[in-house]
Design a protein around this nucleic acid. Structure first.
Lengths: 267, 267
DNA sequence: GGTGATTTGTGCGTATGTATT
DNA sequence: TAATACATACGCACAAATCAC
């Protein structure tokens, strides 16, 4: 197929990208087979290498292709997307129930999918970002205790979960220890009479910064999903939890309202 | 003549991108001021135009910059991000309450933000995608009624909301009419005794395809957020609603559990 | 309203580096 | 070691959009 130049038409590389997209859609290259090498695409379409690269760039940034130096250009596989319960409303509704989605639940979900979830832990004292400060009722720049969980699924990067506590709340509790709490931080909160019973989640999608892209091993065309949860007990805000996921590996689930009639597997 | 890259050093365009990122972070170019033109960056860094463009490409794909032909390169403004209530648990909890987040709520939220929400409507009969079929309890490829709402905020593209109904459910109801229902489709569902009382939402982030990017007027570096809701009444699944948002304009909010203590003025 | 200058977009060519096979 | 394939980097020319005059 020879693309001839015509005024008023879309640029060559865009038409080339569209044609490659079409050939992908009709299944010309299935599975993990490499696409034709750049030199062959130059010949097939009669364009310069630069133009081929511009076209492939488009599809790479759409998350459709990945390029591997020395090997070739491949279809991206979407097989390992895992759903993740971020919230599930209680079957029996009581206003004083804990929200708790303890970390153990995630590990169980992973195991049910035949995978293994592990984590690294860090504790830092930092100045509160503006959005975090608003959520936990302090002023921007005030000190907060940041407890960070770096999660791995089968030793692949999975999520970054950061709990922000007002310094006053964490002082004198095990939340100041630079190590995770068995059973989750919820155990500590319950012990000091601050069981979380409500939350507001904010969901956002954005591209990763360079450090995030490196940590998630996310190439171009892979956005992040960012969940920011503000939690409350009967008195007021307790903490803010920001969790970042790679968009090509995770999806979040929310079970809302009365789900008694949802009985595919009972569960 | 070409300067060979020192071992262990990153490529020129990546170091240039990192330096531009730093200069942006320290606030060298605030507001809507244009960055130095490509020719000046060539001079500042002593590299070819191609290298400058590669570096700027990196930041554009991170969603940090936008380029406008004939004008220049600018910081992207994040002013118009609007939060959007996707769900809010009832203060008084009753298992038979409707979930309903009628479209009117969205319009009210927009008005509260001093903006105006409008919509175009389409109705189509299509074959169910696999993921949709699973949610509404039919087989992939069976006919579904697709009711599509194209929403605009101040005449700018905002969201694409698609409700999928099993053909059997919609037959003989106003859901077959190619026009929106006053008060929302919920009115029709209530009239036929299928008030939705529960739902499962799935949240995902991905890059837009070409048609989506065009409709949302989304340049590179702007992902979509996709909300897919399966709703239930006391009998079983009712419909599947897929709503797509531009990640740089919308965020979704979920109010969970008991939010009585969440009083903006309290504290 | 038109003209030219400015600025990014498209397209070509060439050479060499680096990772994989 | 050699061949292959993508990555980086230089250079040039013209197109298209915008803006100042």
């Amino acid at each position: 197929m020879n693309i001839t130049r015509a005024p008023g038409q879309a640029p060559k590389y865009q038409r080339l990208a569209a044609d490659l997209r079409r050939r992908i859609a009709v299944g010309e290259w299935q599975g993990a087979i490499a696409l034709p090498v750049e030199a062959e695409l130059e010949a097939q379409y009669g364009v310069a290498r630069n133009t081929v690269r511009l076209a492939v760039d488009v599809l790479v940034n759409e998350g459709l292709l990945i390029r591997v130096q020395g090997k070739g250009t491949f279809l991206k596989d979407h097989h390992s997307v895992l759903d993740h319960h971020a919230y599930r409303s209680a079957t029996v509704l009581r206003p004083t129930d804990s929200l708790a989605a303890p970390s153990e639940v995630y590990a169980e979900e992973a195991q049910a999918a035949g995978r293994k979830l592990t984590a690294d832990f860090e504790m830092l004292i930092v100045r509160a970002r503006t959005d975090i400060a608003e959520r936990i009722g302090i002023r921007p720049g005030e000190a907060v205790v940041l407890r960070r969980m770096l999660r791995f699924m089968d030793s692949e990067p999975w999520s970054i979960e950061e709990s922000h506590y007002p310094a006053g709340l964490a002082a004198g509790t095990p939340l100041m220890n630079p190590e995770p709490v068995r059973g989750g931080d919820e155990v500590v909160l319950a012990a000091i009479g601050r069981t979380e019973i409500g939350a507001v989640d904010q969901l956002a999608a954005r591209m990763p910064g360079p450090e995030e892209a490196q940590w998630f091993q996310a190439g171009p065309g892979v956005p992040l999903m960012v969940q920011t949860r503000a939690t409350y007990d009967g008195r007021g805000p307790v903490r803010a939890i920001e969790t970042r996921y790679s968009g090509d590996r995770s999806r979040l689930l929310y079970g809302l309202g009365n789900l008694a009639a949802r009985v595919p597997g009972a569960r």
